[in-house]
């Protein structure tokens, strides 16, 4: 028992000692960027022989909070984000003496998909909004509870099947992106709601961001694989998930045609597919030189072998940026140009 106590005490001291110096990079942030970040981490470790970076999937907001909490070595070096850094986050960062370097890494598409055997869905964002909104705006400027139960009630050209959409819960970044890129756009089709955005933003958000809770939208959890499985067994349902899952399961599910554009690697890369978002990573400039290997990691990430048109990240489902944009961000990463403002 006595020796055990010593062992424990020794362990604690070792722990406190180790907090001072660190030779592995620490990365936190978005679960959407996680697969890409980990792939680069792995290749970086193999190429340089340095210890492999530790990548935590905390979600964009959680990652930013950790990243901006201080400049000491006990804070993460890189934060991944599936949206741009917020004004408030940048302020916190600067207040704590951190000047983040912004690197856009690529694009991600959000697929609206159904089973391979079912007919392809051709849908607009307005129709999606009408199908999923909690309350539907009327032409006379009032709101009515959403009464649509089958797709053809919204538009006669849509199938006569029950509206059933499997999607992520509110905690997910995919949900945020879906709300922003589909629901917002769809509800702005109503002129009076669009005007509301400037006059009463709170009400605008309440109308555009509330998703119905009467069983037509099913929160399927954070696990996108589960949604794919459920789509296979339920041919009438639609699912919402990241493009990489569609890409990996292209023999089981297929993407819907949104606003006249079919989801594909090329249509996202060309910026035609409407439901796609940029992905970022933020690098703590203050740690370069203190924590070993950050520059090498950035060089690996921004190399053509990784994020290029035919780089290994495209195999993982990331959509590369156009060449000029890549060149700009690669130069920023190399020179460690800090983000001055949004």
């Amino acid at each position: 028992m006595k020796s055990l106590a010593w062992l424990v005490a020794a362990g604690l001291f070792m722990g406190v000692g180790a907090a001072q110096a660190r030779d592995n990079i620490e990365i936190v942030g978005s679960s959407t960027v996680y697969p890409f970040s980990t792939t680069v981490a792995e290749n970086y470790a193999k190429k340089t022989g340095n210890p492999a970076p530790k990548v935590e999937s905390t979600g964009t907001g959680g990652g930013m909070k950790l990243f901006c909490s201080g400049a000491g070595v006990d804070t993460p070096d890189i934060s991944n984000a599936s949206r741009r850094i917020k004004e408030s986050e940048l302020e916190t960062c600067k207040k704590n003496g951190i000047n983040p370097v912004e690197v856009k890494v690529g694009y991600d598409g959000i697929a609206i998909a159904n089973a391979k055997e079912a007919p392809t869905f051709t849908i607009t964002r307005k129709e999606l909004f009408l199908a999923l909104a909690k309350e539907v705006p009327q032409e006379d400027g009032t709101l009515a509870p959403n009464k649509f139960t089958t797709w053809n009630e919204i538009d006669a050209k849509l199938p006569a099947t029950k509206i059933e959409v499997l999607g992520p819960p509110p905690t997910s970044g995919t949900r945020d992106a879906f709300v922003e890129m589909v629901m917002h756009v769809g509800c702005k089709e109503f002129a009076w709601v669009k005007d509301l955005e400037k006059t009463d933003e709170k009400k605008f958000k309440a109308i555009c961001e509330s998703i119905r809770e009467d069983g037509h939208y099913v929160e399927a959890g954070e696990n996108d694989n589960l949604i794919v499985q459920k789509l296979q067994s339920n041919k009438d349902a639609l699912g919402i998930f990241g493009f990489s899952f569609l890409d990996q399961n292209s023999d089981k599910v297929k993407g819907a045609n949104v606003d006249g554009v079919e989801i594909s690697f090329d249509s996202i890369a060309a910026g035609q597919y409407p439901v796609s978002r940029p992905l970022y990573m933020y690098v703590k400039k203050e740690h370069v030189g203190t924590v070993k290997g950050i520059e090498d990691f950035l060089a690996e990430f921004t190399s053509d072998a990784a994020w290029g048109d035919e780089g290994y990240l495209t195999d993982k489902g990331m959509i590369p940026m156009p060449t000029e944009e890549r060149a700009k961000f690669a130069a920023d990463a190399k020179a460690l140009t800090a983000l001055s403002g949004l």
Binding site: G11, M14, G15, A18, N24, Y34, S37, T38, A41, E42, A45, P51, A52, K54, V55, E56, S57
Partner: peptide
């Protein structure tokens, strides 16, 4: 601890 770890840990820290 929900993190991507490649290297096998060799001690408690």
């Amino acid at each position: 601890m929900v993190a991507f770890i490649i290297d096998v840990p060799s001690n408690l820290t």
